[in-house]
Design a protein around this nucleic acid. Sequence first.
DNA 1: TGAAAAAAGGGGATTTTTCCCCTTTTTGTT
DNA 2: AACAAAAAGGGGAAAAATCCCCTTTTTTCA
Lengths: 213, 213
Amino acid sequence: MSKHAIAIIDDHLLFAQSLKGLINTFDHFEVTHEANNGQTFIDILNKASRLPEIALMDMNMPIMDGVETAGWLQKNFPSIKVLALSMDDDENSILKMIRNGAKGYLLKDIHPDILLEALNSVLKEGFYHTKRVSDTLVGSLHSDAKKKTDIKLQERELEFLKLASTEMTYKEIANVMSLSPKTIDGYREQLFKKLEVKNRIGLVIYAIKNKIV
Amino acid sequence: MSKHAIAIIDDHLLFAQSLKGLINTFDHFEVTHEANNGQTFIDILNKASRLPEIALMDMNMPIMDGVETAGWLQKNFPSIKVLALSMDDDENSILKMIRNGAKGYLLKDIHPDILLEALNSVLKEGFYHTKRVSDTLVGSLHSDAKKKTDIKLQERELEFLKLASTEMTYKEIANVMSLSPKTIDGYREQLFKKLEVKNRIGLVIYAIKNKIV
DNA sequence: TGAAAAAAGGGGATTTTTCCCCTTTTTGTT
DNA sequence: AACAAAAAGGGGAAAAATCCCCTTTTTTCA
């Protein structure tokens, strides 16, 4: 029987290469595709003769991150099962990834045995969910957790948010953006409502947590 | 000839184990010690019969981080050469690590060949410095870069800084800390000077960048 | 092609933050 | 015992941020 084809998409080459070695020691798996970000992976897939069965996908990557890439795969190569590989078990990250079709969400601090278990499970059951992920999924059904994902920010809002996450005053921000301070007032209040924060500190925390700055 | 003993200190088990596999494929190296944070590593060393020659040290770890551990090693086991392994090439991190005796600073996105090169270089030359690290070191000699490391914050200041990095007003913070708002004023101004920031946004950015929150 | 959304701006008031100037008490260290 | 540092607090004023209320113009999209 031929081995199951695994793809690794991760910008940390040292990790990717090491992990490749590890997976290749697993009896029924072999790493057949490697990419250092989502865009590269897409390019590889588009001229590949063989497709991977499972894609081990890092979350934080330059150019095209894990969430975006997972969404693209869901549309264009739905047969490829995405297993997210992340460093932080942030609720929002988990939800975004699962909503974009990921079959599982693993933390990088797990034991290699768990990875093997997850790979097998994804092939047989179609998914692998740790308790943490299940809990998050259940929790997201109740309460107000729905709103928190998929907040779309306008270009101008994003520009402002980045500048608001510096030590500039609003007057200075208005100058940089060539706007009236009153317009800045408007963007601020808009973002306060949209992001459900009470003040500029909340904006900064949001921006950093969502890797906008 | 026996192989050179390498220790891996990293809380990301999957990475640590994978890396171990990779290093064990290098001709003259083998992984002899593993720990998931600095404290664990110290415990292991204190009852080890054999010492590692090189310690591959992650920066961000729970309980005891890479900088602290490197400092401890410098005092207690100066023969062990520390090679920092980090995800971000933040100038402050590099400086802190080098000042605590690290012989090199590698990013996790390097090619495995570079790791091998670094290991060999540390053994032969006593150090391995990428261009980025050298540049940072040179840059730190000039200008005001000296001040930015080793800023010691008091317990109370740290408490305040954490609360200042939330959406609370200073009045609310004063209540939580059971202090007069005027005392909070004092701590704030003190931190502004100490951290060289202009306003509360600067405090939040500092706190997040230095993993205080 | 017309309504909705986005972008830009204003008046005016209140609250919060920032920034000086200080004092007292406690704690730690030669 | 003496001095330095840390912890706590105050008066007062200026600047910045917050929060309502609005209007106009341009873009987008069904």
